[in-house]
Amino acid sequence: MPEIPDRPETTLFALHRLVWTALMAALIAVGSFLSLPLGPVPFTMQPFFVLLTGLVLGPRHAFAALCVFVGSGLVGLPVFAGGKSGLAVLFGPTGGYLAGYLLAAPLIGLAARGRPGWLRGIVAGLAGLAVIYALGVLNLMRVLGADIGKALLVGFVPFILQDLVKLVLAVAVWRFMHRRGLLPGQAV
């Protein structure tokens, strides 16, 4: 009887990874409903779940989860902040942040490869937040016709401290999941 390898190539592992990818996409959507609409860019829990997605899934599956999330919003599901959806959101004030999520999650996953540690997680998350804020602020400049100072004042300054707290929480959850053997691909 042939032995079934306990490797990423197994069907069960692939199914496990697919479920985690869908779960993380759903959690990002849930994060959009945990929102305070203050100004053109609302406070949400989406950055926490985007950071956690990159840490937990790695680059390829984190990107897939974000594609599912953004794609769901594009086809009309109310998954964006404030229950919004559609192409207009991508071209509106928060569109740059959504594009940043698409790029940040796989970057975080790539930078966080290896044993979950505080330094690795924080550095990976900071790189991801830099991408999110860069694209978000650039898009705010375009949409609002604002200079860099005003765009930073509207789309960066009110959010950075809370997003740094979300980063620390995401790394703590990632490390907890690792210690408990809960990460996708970990032997349980």
Rank of each mutant, 00 (worst) to 15 (best):
M1W: 12
M1P: 02
P2W: 09
P2Q: 15
P2S: 12
P2L: 09
P2A: 15
E3S: 14
I4P: 10
P5Y: 11
R7D: 14
E9L: 15
E9C: 08
T10N: 05
T11K: 12
T11P: 04
L15D: 05
H16D: 13
H16Y: 06
H16W: 00
H16I: 13
L18T: 13
A22N: 14
M24V: 07
M24A: 03
A25L: 05
L27E: 08
I28P: 00
A29I: 05
A29L: 01
G31V: 03
S35Q: 12
L38V: 14
G39Y: 11
P40M: 08
P40I: 13
P40Y: 12
M45A: 15
M45V: 15
M45P: 08
Q46V: 11
P47H: 05
F49A: 01
V50Q: 02
L51F: 00
L52D: 01
T53C: 12
L55R: 01
P59C: 10
F63L: 15
F63T: 08
A64E: 01
A64N: 10
A65T: 08
A65M: 07
L66F: 15
V68L: 15
F69M: 02
V70N: 01
S72F: 03
G73M: 00
L74R: 11
L74S: 02
V75S: 10
V75L: 11
G76K: 03
L77E: 11
L77C: 07
V79D: 02
V79M: 02
A81Y: 00
S85L: 10
G86W: 04
G86A: 09
A88I: 15
V89L: 04
V89I: 07
L90W: 06
L90N: 11
F91Y: 10
G96H: 01
Y97I: 06
Y97G: 04
L98P: 06
L98K: 01
G100Q: 11
G100F: 03
G100S: 06
G100T: 06
Y101N: 00
Y101R: 03
Y101K: 00
Y101D: 01
L103R: 03
A105I: 06
G109D: 07
G109W: 06
L110P: 08
A111Y: 02
R113Y: 12
R113M: 14
P116R: 04
P116K: 05
G117I: 08
L119Y: 13
R120H: 11
G121T: 04
G121C: 02
G121E: 00
G125T: 09
G125V: 01
A127G: 12
G128F: 04
L129P: 00
L129F: 05
L129Q: 02
A130S: 08
A130F: 12
V131E: 00
V131L: 03
I132N: 05
Y133H: 08
L138G: 10
L138D: 13
L138S: 07
N139A: 12
L140G: 02
L140T: 07
R142S: 13
V143H: 07
L144D: 02
G145M: 11
D147L: 06
A151N: 04
V157E: 08
P158E: 03
P158G: 08
P158L: 11
D163R: 03
L164V: 02
V168L: 02
V173P: 05
F176P: 05
F176Y: 11
R179G: 09
R180M: 09
G181S: 15
P184R: 07
